[in-house]
């Protein structure tokens, strides 16, 4: 696998996963708002904090209204992480990886791009939004299904999985970080709504059903955080994703060096218990995890993506 192509596949998968995670997050949060108990003052700005784009948002909009936030996250060309831009970037990487992707896979990614380009800006309103997000998620699932069921387990698969899992780790940690802060910051007299809010966190990570079967019907903050970060059966949990990265990259040269930060985090996660940590502690813990993700990304860059002739000889 060419270094340049490996780099593009990694980013293709990251952008696709970013779009999918964002779609799930928006759908879950929009639903929460629909049936939130009256008087529960839920703002839309929490979404901007999750995608870590407050400065960019504030530059563009004064009011943190539903319309502005949704437009910013779905269809704003000035927001590099918007669904529209993620898909545009995926498109460029898809085009340049065309030679290594099976035709069928290339074609459905291409169709996804046409779908988003044709529909995203008309889907800001609530009425159209749900249908759009559902359709978008289904198309992502179609791509994931094709990758899982038809792609040879070679370097193409490895770098696609690598990009996807890295993005998922990134998004999961941010949802937990911002979500926990928002929920624990609720005024005392709103405590009744809290399980509802934690359910939304689980939904936004597609984790509700798995949580209910594994943990039980009671949705409680420490249990949710433990499940999302540490579950060893749920494939979207942080710990599961990190182990999967290590596993999928194993056959590659220098993989031990690249995945060392993730392995360190995995051992930390084994000892982790949300009930024994306070809010600032959790925030610091997640900051450390983010730092390890960045270290892994940089190591992959150095060992695989930007090889110079001098290094090779």
């Amino acid at each position: 696998m060419l270094s340049r192509v490996a780099d593009r596949l990694y980013w293709l998968a990251r952008y696709l996963e970013r779009s999918e995670c964002t779609a799930r997050l928006l759908a879950a949060y929009s639903q929460l708002i629909l049936d939130a108990p009256t008087g529960l003052e839920l703002g839309w700005d929490v979404l901007v904090r999750i995608i870590d784009a407050e400065p960019a948002f504030n530059k563009r909009y004064k009011l943190r209204s539903e319309r502005n936030v949704i437009k910013f996250i779905m269809a704003d060309e000035k927001n590099i992480g918007s669904i529209q831009n993620s898909i545009l970037n995926a498109r460029e990487n898809n085009r340049t990886s065309r030679a290594v992707l099976p035709g069928e896979l290339w074609e459905i990614i291409n169709e996804l791009q046409l779908f988003v380009a044709g529909n995203v800006s008309q889907s800001i309103d609530r009425k159209a939004r749900f249908a759009f997000l559902d359709d978008l998620t289904a198309r992502h699932q179609q791509i994931n299904g094709l990758v899982a069921s038809t792609l040879a387990r070679d370097d193409v698969f490895r770098f696609l999985k690598f990009g996807q899992l890295m993005e998922r780790c990134d998004m999961t940690t941010r949802v937990i970080d911002v979500g926990t802060a928002a929920i624990r910051g609720m005024p005392k007299h709103r405590e009744l709504a809290i399980p509802h809010l934690w359910s939304t966190v689980l939904k936004s990570l597609s984790a509700l059903g798995a949580y209910q079967r594994e943990v039980g019907p009671l949705v409680e903050s420490e249990e949710v955080i433990n499940f999302v970060l540490c579950s060893d059966v749920f494939p979207r949990s942080l710990s599961f994703c990190m182990l999967s990265v290590t596993e999928v990259l194993k056959p590659l040269r220098d993989s031990a060096a690249v995945t060392a930060p993730l392995q360190a985090t995995s051992s930390e996660l084994e000892k982790f218990d949300a009930s024994k940590i306070d809010m600032p502690g959790l925030h610091m813990f997640i900051d450390e995890i983010q730092a390890q993700l960045i270290a892994t990304h940089n190591a992959a860059f150095e060992h695989w993506f930007t090889l110079q002739a001098e290094q090779l000889q």
């Binding site: 696998m1 340049r4 490996a6 090779l312």
Partner: peptide, 19 residues
Amino acid sequence: SDLYVDQNDCVLMRTVGGP
């Protein structure tokens, strides 16, 4: 930029597994 010629005048490509 994916290719280079080494001192033996052979053409090599830069891959994740090495030249």
